[in-house]
Amino acid sequence: MIDLKNVSLSFGDHPVLHNISLSLSERRIAVIGANGSGKSSFARLLNGLALPTSGTVSVDGFDTKKQGKDVRGRVGFVFQNPDNQIVFPVVEEDLAFGMKNLGLDKATIATRTTEILERYDMQHLREHPAHLLSGGQKQLLAISGVLVMAPAYVVLDEPTTLLDLRNKRRIARVLNALDQTIIHVTHDLDQIADYDRVIVIDEGRVACDATPAKAIPFYQELMA
């Protein structure tokens, strides 16, 4: 479970999030909100990329401020632009990066690499230069790079914004098939209709926290 207690965040004297208290334990959680509403900052709090100015964020009891390493091992993070997430020039090397950081041995790294590439039908791309992949393949590689670290939670910050419709749907299917708890920040409302919970963030506050059936119409009303 990810717990936020009285969390506020500001950059300098510019407040971004105000006194948010939440517990995240459902399997499919969506976070929606306008550009600049603070939803990206909210996502970044969950794995310690951003640290709260006041209040605490904890993941399975580990405080993001004090136990950053334990938190990173539990919470994977997928960014909007896969180009900025893929660190190594070749697919296989990039997949290995996170696992090396976890201290896994070579055999485990090789096994998990094969598994994930087979799962997403990318075996033929194992030795492929990452920058030559298509946009959809890159995002799939970025997600795979996170999944091979076997996190309990996956936070995704607008992972489908830069993709075409076909790839949006492909990534949505991939996300729906995951065993992990996912916290998915998105603008694609049609992808989250069957989620367990939708959190609407507006001007740094939780404006609505309900089922998709209630939260999506609320959000559409808010944006009208």
Partner: peptide, 16 residues
């Protein structure tokens, strides 16, 4: 901007 994002990604992938 890209370099800043990449540093975040490296950090979130557990690099010490």
């Amino acid at each position: 901007k890209m370099a800043d994002d990449v540093s975040d990604a490296i950090e979130s992938r557990g690099y010490r």
